[in-house]
Amino acid sequence: MQIIWQPKIALIFFLLIFFIIYFFYLSGEKKYKKDTFQTMAYFSGKTPSQNIKLQNIYWGFFEDFKKLYMFLAKIQKENSNDYIFLFILGSIIFLLALSL
């Protein structure tokens, strides 16, 4: 029988499971002491500023591709000479590939 992706069935079952679990979830404890020391985020050492910089968030991922990023940053400077040079280079590559 041909597999056709039916999103409606998936959504219905997702919601059914969600409600059953929500029903179980409600039996848990809801109250907590608001605005006390309990809700402060846990810091073991000196408390840094509330927001840490998320900019270079994929530090681990970059480490392995450091050389590639250096190369990419080098060839792509923002001026029209480089743009036109890259465009002509690309169309020459395209022509060579096409004429194989």
Partner: peptide, 30 residues
């Protein structure tokens, strides 16, 4: 013929430039 290939590659590379795909994507971020 070969001349058609040259023509096709010229037209295709200028349209790919407009589309901003791999070899000609450099202008899009700026």
């Amino acid at each position: 013929s070969f001349l058609d290939k040259v023509a096709l590659s010229l037209i295709a590379s200028s349209l790919l430039l407009k589309a901003g795909v791999f070899p000609f994507y450099f202008w899009k971020p700026e």
